[in-house]
Design a binder for these strands. Sequence first.
DNA 1: ATTATATATCGCAAATATACGATATGAAAT
DNA 2: ATTTCATATCGTATATTTGCGATATATAAT
Lengths: 113, 113
Amino acid sequence: MAINRKMDFQADEIALADFAKAIAHPARIAILKILAQQKSCICGEIVEGLPLAQATVSQHLKELKVIGLIKGTIEGKTSCYCIDWEVFNAFVGQFGVFAELAQNAPNQSQSCC
Amino acid sequence: MAINRKMDFQADEIALADFAKAIAHPARIAILKILAQQKSCICGEIVEGLPLAQATVSQHLKELKVIGLIKGTIEGKTSCYCIDWEVFNAFVGQFGVFAELAQNAPNQSQSCC
DNA sequence: ATTATATATCGCAAATATACGATATGAAAT
DNA sequence: ATTTCATATCGTATATTTGCGATATATAAT
């Protein structure tokens, strides 16, 4: 790979790709589902709900936290996580860009497949 | 990594993660944007629109094609790609799962962050 | 038939992601 | 103060992704 190719793409393309990357793993999807259900947001129970070691789950949680999809607070001895719906919905909303581009396209008919 | 961990997750979690992985790169987002605009779906022009070598773009196109997000047909000397909106919209729609889980959650109040 | 052009595929190097044991950290209980 | 428990971080092995030159393939033009 060459040196930082990222600069060659637009900021919104990079942002959407980064969001996709953050959820591009079944474990992280599973974590979000658990948090959405709020069955519990205590870290330990998330670990129990997944077929992965504690260290691995902690790593996945960190990835989701870094990009802002989840928030985490320390409650005494335990850690507590939950979805930041504002961030989550903002990301999902970005998929609308494609439909918009399609609608504003000048030549709808020129389709070859 | 251990041997096929994938089996430990649910089918829908794997499917959504695979979709996310397919678009988890700025180049693939950029390709989808170009196709959405239908500025042209000829492979060569996609290559010109991206800061990547032809071989690399071809590889990205293949990834999008394998997962079904785009369709490709050969038109004489050139190749022509376009978005499969049915597949695309189906994938995007899957994000609704999280909101549904949140709505059906029994204990909305128990939030610790 | 030969050549030019467009695209796909191969092979490899480098970068990144994933998994997990071991260990660190820090609060709570004893 | 020491131990226990929950979680985070480190180090490292392995797997996957990315990028690209070289090459194959196949159509169109000469």
